[in-house]
Amino acid sequence: MEFNLITKEGFSVVELSGDVDLSCSAAARETILRSLASGQPTLVDLSAVTYIDSSGVASLVEGYQVARRKHLEFGLLKVSEAVRSVLELAHLDRVFKIHDSLEDRLAQG
């Protein structure tokens, strides 16, 4: 499983999709860390994620921590319902900056 990493409007966007579980969370983590290593502010697009487990959530948490150390922006885009309920369960819905869309983020300036 490979995930897309694209650049849009000065942001590096990681596009996760499908079931982000133990079978592919290592690839998700690797893509997120690669994005941050390039020094770009990073947004993780979760609109196409149908399921996320704790290993998938862990890769998001790790991205958040690495970005903070590097003083880089890190946020989530278009969080699907499946992902939102898991983030709530882990009390992480208020930790991450969550945007409805890239435009929404850009509008904030």
Partner: peptide, 13 residues
Amino acid sequence: LADLRPGGLGTHF
């Protein structure tokens, strides 16, 4: 859960 780190969430779930 206040201890923000990757991993260890499974049992909580």
